[in-house]
């Protein structure tokens, strides 16, 4: 009897330890990644100072002497992010509102998995689709020399981020208690008023989280952007200029540079900046969504 209890305790403790270790292993990876990024990224600042690295206008890592100004790359990432956000926010939020408010039960059961499937398409497929279909189409449509550009990248990445924005927005909308809707209807509001004045404000922070996580997804996206953005490390003058965002730069150049070279360290430093930016986005999203849950009284 006692033995049985002891054994059960023993078993429970074992499970507890296994799961604790599993949970902490991701922390170990995170710390490991941060250490590597700093260790390999920081040495570049012995060559160029931080200011010149961030705001230098030319990126010629293989020239002699090389130039490591990542300003065009950051600008490219920034503009692609803005462009793709402009594409994904209306599409993502619009489809979430449709799913949540208008779609019948059957339509929902059909559309929701479909949109989630969009998230499961490998990014190289998006890149391929962008290169082979969208880019030539845009090239013809606007009669421009190249189809691979900031514009194309924004379109494709925007579409890629739609599932993220849509499903998080949809979750946020469905977290809004049914009782709010009933309360609104009970004082004579119609559906539209209830949606715009009660449901969307109540889900507001959840929707902001969706947008921020969508943006974070866009900034971190590599393969697609490498394939459709055109790859020129210049400061874009129009939306139809080819660009070279940070992720694409790392992916394209990492294979060609010598380990431990200045170029190598510069790429790691770019990675470090990307890491910090996405970390920042995720922290903001977390803060907002926590505040939101508190506001709705859903606990932490």
């Amino acid at each position: 009897m006692i033995d049985a209890i002891k054994f059960r305790n023993y078993k429970e403790n074992t499970y507890k330890w296994i799961f604790t270790i599993l949970a902490f292993s991701s922390l170990v990876f995170l710390v490991g990644i941060i250490i590597v990024l700093f260790k390999e990224g920081l040495p570049i600042f012995k060559e160029v100072n931080l200011f010149k690295f961030l705001f230098g206008k030319s990126w010629y890592p293989t020239y002699d002497p090389p130039e490591f100004g990542i300003f065009p790359l950051m600008l490219a990432s920034f503009w692609v992010m803005i462009g793709a956000t402009i594409v994904c926010v209306p599409l993502g939020i619009g489809s979430a509102l449709y799913l949540h408010e208008l779609a019948s039960f059957k339509q929902r059961a059909f559309l929701k998995p479909l949109i989630e499937m969009l998230a499961g398409v490998p990014s190289i497929v998006y890149g391929f689709f962008g290169m082979v279909i969208v880019a030539p189409f845009i090239q013809k449509l606007f009669n421009i020399p190249v189809g691979l550009s900031l514009f194309t990248a924004s379109m494709i990445l925007g579409i890629m981020a739609v599932p993220t924005v849509c499903s998080i927005t949809e979750d946020a909308l469905s977290y809004v208690p049914k009782s709010f809707r009933e309360a609104s209807f009970a004082v004579g509001a119609n559906r539209w008023q209830t949606l715009t004045k009660v449901i969307i404000p109540a889900a507001g922070s959840g929707i902001s989280t969706a947008i921020i996580l969508g943006m974070s997804r866009i900034v971190g996206e590599t393969m697609t952007v490498l394939m459709v953005s055109g790859g020129a490390a210049i400061i874009p003058k129009s939306i139809f200029d080819p660009v070279r965002p940070m992720t694409a730069t790392i992916a394209a150049e990492m294979g060609e540079c010598a380990m431990g070279s200045k170029h190598f360290h510069a790429l790691f430093a770019i990675g470090l900046i990307l890491f910090l930016v996405t970390l920042f986005f995720n922290i903001i999203a977390e803060i907002i969504s926590r505040r939101y849950r508190l506001k709705l009284g859903l606990g932490r």
């Binding site: 208690p177 009782s179 709010f180 009933e182 309360a183 609104s184 009970a186 009660v198 109540a202 506001k295 709705l296 009284g297």
Partner: peptide
């Protein structure tokens, strides 16, 4: 109408 659970808007 007044409901079973108080449901003020946030």
């Amino acid at each position: 109408m007044v409901f079973q659970k108080p449901n003020p808007f946030p």
